[in-house]
């Protein structure tokens, strides 16, 4: 019983309920770093960590938390976890931290974290909320990583910094620049929405 519930939460967050496709939520802070795969992976790891732990904490407090200051408390919890991510990155991955700059801090305003805390953690026990946090974080991450792989490959001819395409490959500069991300995401949403409609029929 419990296991099937966990499984259901997991599948829903990764598939049909995927926050990026279903609501186009939370792309703000991470989309900007998707032109290099390495940065994206680190950002996503930070996001999964924050979503999972803030879900856990909010859920553990849900019965004592006064309703009126709910949002404030949630923001505070999220901000604290993001600070931890920032400190850890600066101490152990200084190069990546330097490149990401302010984007780590922007995880705070990522709508997914707040959204999951409000929609799931407030009504479910801590364990399940933790799983939900990980699942929605991962669901979000794989979309962004797919975008990052394509952007880095087409834009710089590399993946994870290693040259993959032949030397004479002309880089599609537009891919590493801002418009590339918009187009890629739109195409992804198109594909996913198109295929899910066909399934329903």
């Amino acid at each position: 019983m419990a296991q099937s519930k966990v499984k259901r939460v997991f599948l829903e967050d990764l598939g049909s309920g995927n926050p990026v496709f279903a609501q186009v939520l939370g792309i703000c802070s991470t989309l900007a770093v998707t032109n290099v795969l390495k940065n994206t992976v680190v950002m996503c790891a930070g996001l999964v960590f924050t979503t999972a732990l803030s879900n856990l904490t909010v859920s553990a407090m849900r019965n004592v938390m006064p309703g009126r200051i709910r949002m404030m408390v949630e923001t505070l919890i999220i901000a604290s976890y993001v600070i931890i991510v920032d400190i850890v990155l600066r101490a152990y991955l200084p190069d990546v931290s330097r490149q990401l700059g302010p984007y780590v801090g922007l995880i705070i305003t990522n709508c997914i974290i707040m959204g999951r805390a409000e929609a799931f953690a407030l009504n479910n026990p801590p364990g399940l909320s933790f799983i939900d946090g990980i699942a929605s974080g991962l669901g979000y991450s794989y979309v962004l990583m797919a975008i990052a792989v394509l952007r880095e490959l087409l834009g710089s001819g590399t993946i994870w910094g290693y040259r993959v395409l032949w030397e004479s490959w002309t880089n599609w500069s537009i891919m590493v620049m801002a418009p590339g991300a918009f187009f890629m995401l739109a195409i992804f949403i198109w594909i996913v929405k198109g295929s899910s409609k066909r399934e329903k029929k």
């Binding site: 186009v24 620049m177 418009p179 918009f182 187009f183 739109a186 198109w190 594909i191 929405k193 198109g194």
Partner: peptide
């Protein structure tokens, strides 16, 4: 196109706007 309606087309317009702003 159906799959593109809503968020999809908005993102494409945003992409074109970003190009224009460049």
């Amino acid at each position: 196109p159906k799959g593109l309606a809503g968020a999809g087309i908005t993102l494409i317009i945003a992409g074109i706007m970003a190009l224009a702003f460049m």
